[in-house]
Simulated scan of single mutants.
Amino acid sequence: MALELTRIGVIRNPRSHANHGRASAPPAGVLWGEPETPAALAEDLRRFAQAGVELVVVDGGDGTLREVLSALPAAFGAAAPILAVLPSGKTNVLALDLGVRPGWTLDAALARAAHEPMGLKTRRPLTLTWAGGEQADLSGFIFGLGAFVRATQMSHSVHRMGAFHSLAVGLTVVGAAFGALFGRDGDGWRQGVRAGLALDGNEATVAARFVVLVTSLKRLPLGLRPFGSPQDGLKVLEVTAPPRRLALALPAVLMGRAEAWLRRRGYHRSLAERVVITSPAPVVVDGEVFPGGEITIGLGAPVRFLVP
């Protein structure tokens, strides 16, 4: 399957790391949008849908992609387009999972789209719904609570140091590990946050949790495997607070080793269809902080991604 250029649209975030200060213009026959607000993004996607766009190129980072995925259903309904990701952000975790390297250009993506057949990979994003509707529903790929929120906030300093992509993730993990390893049980790193967690309709357990991570990705930067061996589905990692024997557990968890003593010490990996997390603490979705609450996490419909 190949696409005509008249059925391709581009959503470009001019504030993304690689795009900042660089002007760009649409190629002939390609619909273009550089929305400044969620309402403008929704309008651009409706315009694309009305024009029969079958491929949407997202030129931005993980946050831009999250906003596009979240707005797609209202614009396209069940007839979702193929997406292509130009990794223009600071970390680009989904692009890494798809095998899209930094530097993949719009011209290269358009050439790939015209190739017969196109290269496609399928991923199912997380769907996140806040009870009470105080926060709009989101679609994304990495959810975090507890120490992950602090590590994400710390990553902004890493970016200011000039570290991006996998290096930024690595430095953030090292910094978070340092804070957790050498902090006291009552400090901000180790004390965790109190949260209820329920998997697949089971009764929620309420406890202090050092970290909760949820993803549908198979591959993370630097070969990290905190969810175990790569597999499809909604994967959950939870660690009780304060984390026990962290110096010994951390390398085992990050390398994906399945050792019985980890679970006994409060390190739990799970595969689920539905997760409900209840906590007033803030959470992170694809690199941005959002309010806590009662949040239901599931798997969305499969999305096809164009890859090199």
Rank of each mutant, 00 (worst) to 15 (best):
P87N: 04
G99V: 09
S70C: 13
A42L: 07
L126F: 15
R101P: 10
G103V: 15
T37Q: 11
L41V: 08
E54L: 04
A113M: 00
Q50M: 11
P27D: 01
R123S: 10
P73W: 06
E67N: 15
G52D: 08
R112L: 07
L86R: 04
A71V: 05
A75P: 07
G33L: 00
T37A: 10
L120N: 02
A51R: 15
L96Q: 06
V93W: 03
N92R: 09
W104V: 15
L98E: 09
V58M: 11
L96H: 11
L126A: 14
T37Y: 08
V93P: 05
A108T: 11
L55W: 12
F76P: 05
I82A: 06
R66L: 15
L41Q: 02
W32C: 08
A49T: 08
R101V: 15
I82S: 00
G52Y: 02
W32A: 07
W104R: 14
A74W: 02
K121H: 01
L120K: 00
D44G: 03
A111H: 06
P125L: 11
P102V: 12
L65N: 07
L86Y: 03
F48R: 06
E36M: 01
D97A: 13
L83D: 01
A80H: 09
L94G: 03
L45I: 00
E116S: 15
V53F: 04
P27T: 12
V53T: 13
L45A: 03
Q50N: 10
L106Q: 08
V85E: 09
P26D: 12
V30N: 00
G60C: 04
A80M: 11
A28P: 03
V100S: 08
L55N: 12
A80L: 15
T105R: 11
P35H: 05
I82V: 11
L45R: 03
S88E: 14
K121L: 07
P35I: 10
A111W: 02
L45T: 06
P81N: 04
Q50T: 14
L126Y: 12
G103S: 11
A79I: 08
R124E: 13
L126K: 03
L45Q: 00
G99F: 09
A40M: 13
L45N: 02
V85T: 06
D59T: 06
G60Y: 02
G33R: 08
L72V: 14
L83K: 05
L120R: 10
L86N: 09
F76H: 07
L96K: 05
W32I: 09
A113F: 00
G60M: 04
G29V: 07
F48L: 12
T91L: 07
V30H: 05
G60P: 05
D44K: 04
T91V: 15
T37D: 07
L83C: 10
L120A: 01
V100G: 10
L106N: 00
P26Q: 13
P35R: 12
A114H: 01
L96P: 01
V68L: 09
R46V: 03
T105G: 12
A79K: 13
G60S: 06
R66W: 07
W104L: 15
G99E: 08
R46Y: 00
V85F: 14
A71G: 00
A49W: 05
L120E: 05
L72P: 12
R47T: 03
A84C: 14
L45C: 04
G99A: 13
G103Q: 06
V85K: 06
L45F: 04
A95L: 08
L110N: 02
M118D: 01
A95Y: 07
R124L: 04
V58C: 14
G103F: 03
